[in-house]
Design a protein around this nucleic acid. Structure first.
Lengths: 340, 340
DNA sequence: CTGTTAGCGCATTCAC
DNA sequence: GTGAATGCGCTAACAG
């Protein structure tokens, strides 16, 4: 393994000083065309590439990398966002550093460490909400941050209209004729501060109220994310003296668990029970799941655009925070309630 | 935005020299417990974190990051591997830099750029096969590389037994009584050099031969990855004068497309046509898809372990290349052929 | 055990 | 225009 060359090698070979080499590397105007050519030739011959690390250390240069802090990045909802982020990044000169968080401790540690380490020029935080103290630290270290699927008064954010999503799902069910509508979600109170389950609950309750249906606490079940837990929650719901005729799940994954449970009881979807999901993940179309589509890919795209706006050297500007709309996708898992 | 602290600040605050600070940062044994505590306290108070960039520049230090080059990392098969990789990395002090490749040009550019940029200490390449020239470059720049789901004579690799997977899938179908078995795969000849479709075809053909069934070229259909293309390919297959009674798909995603097509024709799975997939992605269990399970997560884990072995300063050793076994998972999409 | 010093590769002064 | 010197934050080698 031969050592990689440095500008000093190039300088020697071209018979100039290192300063000059640095100048041609950075397209500095004050270099005569003649020496410039000599240097370029030497670079070529040596197959020399400047070290981005050294470059950054001197003159506080850029890293040309952006960081993503995301919880459970392998879950479909996050993969979709990452996909959008990646699509934009691929067109740029930026690399992507992925910080996954699976525990609240990791989150805390990352929020502290990443701004300090300066391994990335900017940060996109997905679904995780920084504390005021965290935000202060980001500012202190001059780390540009954009929030995705979460928000904070002092940070630009791209969110998705979860309240409206909850409303739309509920309205759809009510319009079909349902009155006994249950809601299955992730735990409202969770160590990561995820808010979407709570926001969708809000929309659900608002719409219920609008339609003159009383909210029943026993119709709202919470449990860890995942198909199996949702399966179990659904069994609980169906064991009620007056079980719901429709279930709104806070994610497609959970909706699948609900359907599984219903079928296992020998009931049919949607003839006996209707189920509506949330996200519109890839498989939703395949299984014909009615759901609320979130613009996951697009939100990823928007978040990077916002970050680039913050990173723009020429005219850095504060990107606007905004909310993306959701859309009801009707398929085959919802229908009118059984004649009863 | 206040400047970030350096070890000099810590040293001053703790009343020691920078060398001592560096020692406690690196767990150097020769530091008295007393001064160690003083330094630790100063670090704590300042909320100090060493700069990985400076760290690397000095003494050819490590970057404490490893790179992953993966094509289409949002596909389930890759997400599963990433998950395994991440799980190991999370326990280590290494960060993850993700290089996604969607085009052959990106692949070529990444293979050149990543080794000399030295942004990462080591590299895991998934499913993409470097050329001899690429391998030479990795060596020249001293970039440790582990291959995952692909191989090269000069590089350690973790592969999965695709040939055997093709055999097992085919054997399962034959044992059920099928003789007219089709195979749907990605294009054998593709710009990325993906080999798995070809290897599974090999297993399929070998097993067919073993069972005395002649291979029929018109029973092998290739097309871009994805449910929709597989859907179309299945329609072609079913339009044959003597359509197959069973279909082996090179991925679960494609198997879903096949099932979709079959059902759309008013046929039932598995009563009329059997379908077996490959991968055992999350949703396979949900839809009851019979499939060949690939240890995706585990293969990710193994690849990082192998890379760490290469990276180990004390006794760097060449990790062995090996192949992980696959497993037939019988569910409800395969059965005996219709009485015919 | 611990303080001091010399680089790591590069960009950026400052003189010439 | 261009060469030499200085420093980015850190680790390692060298003295004490």
């Amino acid at each position: 393994m031969s050592r990689t060359y440095t500008i000093r090698d190039v300088a020697k070979r071209a018979g100039v000083g290192v300063g000059t080499v640095s100048r041609v590397l950075n397209d500095h105007p004050s270099v005569s065309e003649e020496t410039r050519q000599k240097v370029l030739a030497a670079i070529e011959e040596l197959d020399f590439h400047p070290s981005p690390v050294a470059r950054q250390l001197s003159a506080g240069g850029k890293t040309l990398a952006i960081g993503i802090i995301a919880p459970f990045f392998t879950r479909p909802a996050f993969v979709g966002r990452l996909e959008g982020i990646e699509a934009v990044l691929a067109q740029s000169e930026y690399d992507l550093v992925l910080y996954n968080v699976e525990t609240p401790e990791q989150q805390a540690s990352l929020f502290r460490k990443v701004p300090y380490e300066r391994r990335v020029d900017g940060l996109i935080i997905i679904s995780l909400t920084p504390s005021n103290e965290d935000v202060k630290r980001f500012e202190r270290y001059g780390m540009p941050v954009v929030l995705l699927d979460t928000s904070h008064p002092d940070l630009p954010s791209i969110t998705i209209d979860d309240v409206d999503g909850g409303k739309q799902a509920t309205r759809h069910l009510v319009e079909l004729g349902h009155r006994r509508i249950a809601y299955i979600s992730d735990p409202l109170d969770n160590p990561f501060g995820f808010r979407s389950s709570a926001l969708r609950l809000e929309g659900y309750r608002e719409m219920l109220a609008e339609c003159g249906i009383e909210f029943r606490p026993d119709y709202h079940r919470q449990g860890e994310h995942g198909r199996h837990v949702a399966h179990h929650l659904t069994q609980e719901l169906m064991a009620l003296p007056d079980p719901p005729t429709a279930i709104f799940a806070a994610s497609d994954t959970q909706a699948l668990g609900a359907i599984e449970a219903i079928r296992q009881m020998g009931l049919r979807v949607p003839e006996d029970i209707s189920v509506i999901g949330y996200d519109d993940i890839e498989v939703a179309a395949y299984v014909g799941l009615t759901t609320i589509r979130q613009p996951m890919y697009q939100s990823g795209v928007e978040s990077v655009k916002a970050l680039f706006q913050l990173l723009d050297e020429e005219n850095p500007s504060l990107p606007a925070s905004y909310t993306l709309p959701v859309q009801l996708i009707e398929r085959e898992t919802t229908g009118p309630p059984a004649a009863a």
